[in-house]
Amino acid sequence: MIVDRSHSRWMLGCAALGLGSTAAYVFYALRAPNGPSGGSPAGLAFAFAGAGLIGFECLLSLRKKYPASPLGRVQTWLRAHIWLGLLSLLLILFHAGFRWGQGLALLLMWLFAVITASGVFGLVLQRYLPRRITELAPRETLYDQIPQVIRLLRMEADERVEFVTADLGVDDGEPAALYAGGKKFYFDAAQRKSAAEKVEAERQKRKASPQIAVDEEAGRALKAHYLQEIRPFLALRPSGFARRLFHNPGAVSAYFQYLRTIMPVASHDVLRDLEAICEERRQLAVQARLHRWLHGWLYVHVPLSMAFLVLTAVHAVLSLRY
């Protein structure tokens, strides 16, 4: 969620409520002989208002779980979540009289501070990281599709290298899918064979013998480079060495520039395609990393919010009890 003009109504509404609450707090704090206290009628009023907003904040998870719910758009709920959440912090500080208390009250104040800080941190990340992902990873895909795309990239790379080296002796444990590689849809429609049969036939032929003629030494060199350095980088979780080898676009480009100097010209098309595949894999790694930053704060925000809700209920009941 990006804070833009569409938030202005919520922002102004909450600012007005915040100012009103601040005025009420100042009036009450100046008149209270013992100073502001959570147990005073005004302190309890702030507590109930703050707790009500916190309860509403936690309903966002439920609303997201039922996207087709008629209770307003999720975007509207998110805007309310952001601004009412900040307002609830103010109300809880007024309830506590800006004291952090001790025991459970202290724990709750810390939890609330961490929850709010993580929420604000997430909001800032959501403002900047999506743009950054687009800049750094133009080949980005859906985050959930990244493992699938990586697998396909690896299969495609295998196929393309086999044009030079024949069978690589690697198997991902499944037959080449129809969508495995750039060739799959460019079959001859005039032929009576099914697309799958044609692909399988081509695969068998490719594995049987090199389709691009290079000398044996060059073929072995490409195979060695591919299996030891390039293919490990195309794994779902690349090794540290592979990640370092292709850690930025310059490194990828330099690596394949070197390969092109030692390999015959006939294999350069394959190398250029491998370079594109590695660059795409690298961008997916960048996307995955930034995605984890973009959503990682929720690991703190959501569980702590739920724990906070439970402990707030305990605090409310037992504070009123005593």
Binding site: L142, Q145, Y179, G182, K183, F185, Y186, V270, R272, I277
Partner: peptide
Amino acid sequence: YERRVLDTKGLAQRID
């Protein structure tokens, strides 16, 4: 050997 071409259709069909 056909060079790698990633068009919109190709990208879409990679999606599971």
